[in-house]
């Protein structure tokens, strides 16, 4: 397994580190191996994209990081301590925006503040003031402020996904986990949202793990791209995407950007053929 150098200067201890983590579903003869022992370390503030054919265990890595499931083998460390030792603040967003239809966009965005400590204890006191301002600041940033009082279904898919990003970020998570967040959007909306996400990431220290099928998306957004093999998943290649920031859509048509994509594509196609 090759772990290339990271873009940012390596901190003493990575924010999250997977140490030979494996996941097996079921047991006995019907056991399916979703993830073969995989190691991955992500320094604080990094942006890592996981790409690969479907069913390769990309989402499994996110679920492990979010403590939604436990590894069958291996260890996960967060800030040098075993994951679960202390609460990790996580923001998560999926392809479907999963906004709550009975709430306004603003209330949807504020939802994590109602759940996650220490905001949770201040909810009653600050929901009308500080928290509301906090939500509005994010909505302003993502161009949704005029829709703050609308219901989710009154917004387009792209706008719903913006609100989804706001919800995932409002509680200042240490770790932002994105599972194909733009997968259901059209090309233009998707590219717009890449810009929004890049902006949001650049102005805070959140560490991002992004699962995507879209290689252009991975290369546009991430500092590092991990290519995964078909099931049982493992990381085939972990390479830097060191284009200057802020990146623009025009850059994605330049030769060195295209070369990265071509290389990634080759790897995935090759691994798929190998699996057949």
């Amino acid at each position: 397994m090759m772990l290339e150098k990271n873009l940012k200067p390596a901190t003493v201890e990575p924010l999250i580190r997977f140490d030979r983590v494996a996941v097996t579903y079921g047991g006995g003869a019907e056991a399916t191996e979703a993830l073969t022992p995989t190691s991955l370390s992500v320094p604080e503030g990094d942006f890592v994209a996981l790409v690969g054919p479907s069913g390769c265990g990309k989402s499994t890595i996110l679920k492990l990081a979010a403590e939604l499931m436990k590894p069958s083998a291996g260890d996960i460390y967060f800030g040098g301590r075993e994951l679960g030792a202390k609460p990790v603040r996580v923001g998560m967003a999926f392809q479907s925006s999963t906004l709550l239809p009975w709430m306004s966009i603003r209330d949807n965005v504020m939802l994590p503040l109602k759940i996650v400590p220490p905001f949770r204890g201040q909810w009653r006191r600050k929901r009308g003031g500080e928290f509301r301002d906090r939500a509005d600041a994010l909505l302003e940033k993502t161009g949704l402020i005029d829709f703050a009082d609308k219901q989710p279904w009154q917004l387009s898919g792209g706008m719903q996904q913006r609100a989804n990003l706001c919800r995932a970020l409002i509680h200042d998570p240490d770790l932002l986990l994105l599972d194909e967040p733009f997968g259901a959007l059209d090309q233009f909306t998707r590219e717009e949202l890449w810009g929004t996400l890049q902006e949001l990431w650049m102005e805070r220290t959140v560490t991002v793990l992004l699962v995507t099928h879209d290689l252009r998306e991975a290369a546009f957004l991430a500092n590092r791209i991990c290519v995964m093999s078909p099931r049982p998943g493992r990381i085939l290649e972990d390479r830097a995407a060191d284009f200057p920031r802020p990146r623009t859509i025009d850059m994605t048509f330049e030769p060195d950007f295209a070369a990265v994509i071509q290389r990634l594509r080759g790897l995935i196609v090759h691994s798929r053929e190998g699996a057949r």
């Binding site: 923001g91 999926f94 509680h171």
Partner: peptide
């Protein structure tokens, strides 16, 4: 997915 989002917030 919604349940996962909620659980990820503990």
């Amino acid at each position: 997915e919604l349940e996962d989002v909620m659980k990820s917030m503990k």
